[in-house]
Amino acid sequence: MENSPSTHQEMQQEMTIGRWLFNPFVRIAGARSLIIGLAGIVVAGLVAAGAGIHFDGLLDVHAGNEVAPWMPVVEGLVNWAVFTLLLLVVALLFSKSAVRLIDIAGTQAMARMPLLLVAAICNLPLIQDAFDGVAAAVINGQLAGLPWGALATGILVTLSGVVWMVALMWKAFSISCNMRGGRAIALFILAVLIGEAATLYLTRYVL
């Protein structure tokens, strides 16, 4: 018999900056990740409200007009709670391990930390003005006057943040539910699709 597979390697690996950024859950899970993650969701929501940003869906970041300070916070909490429940169901049905709700909830909360960076950068006056100006420019047909550089930066940061968040959500799921391989990827994608539909409905029509 050789070593037990990838978990052995995970435990042996030094934590480089890359691993802290894309797989911190080897070191942090449970209550600690839940506290860090929930604090991140609340702060990201408050910062996002300042920038007029909504988290209206599991993977959605949209610029709006006036946003009540509590709205992105509640949206963030709803997105996190819905996806945690979905992954709990997946784990109970398909995982070979005895998973803990606190690990799924904590790591998924922490996986949403990139949204804090997105909200902070979108709060920069230059980017905020660019987003604010888009709707007016489209209506007036004056696209030439838009600050395209700032707009492109804002969009690139938002997209990168969401991709980073999805990568973290996958790692969080893989470690907290002990699921790997093709079937785990398929179940994760299915959970994301159901989660996106459910949170879109909840954040747009119920809240």
Binding site: F25, G30, S97, I175
Partner: peptide
């Protein structure tokens, strides 16, 4: 390491 990492191993 975290609890789930040990449990997975």
């Amino acid at each position: 390491v975290s609890y789930p990492t040990v449990r997975n191993r």
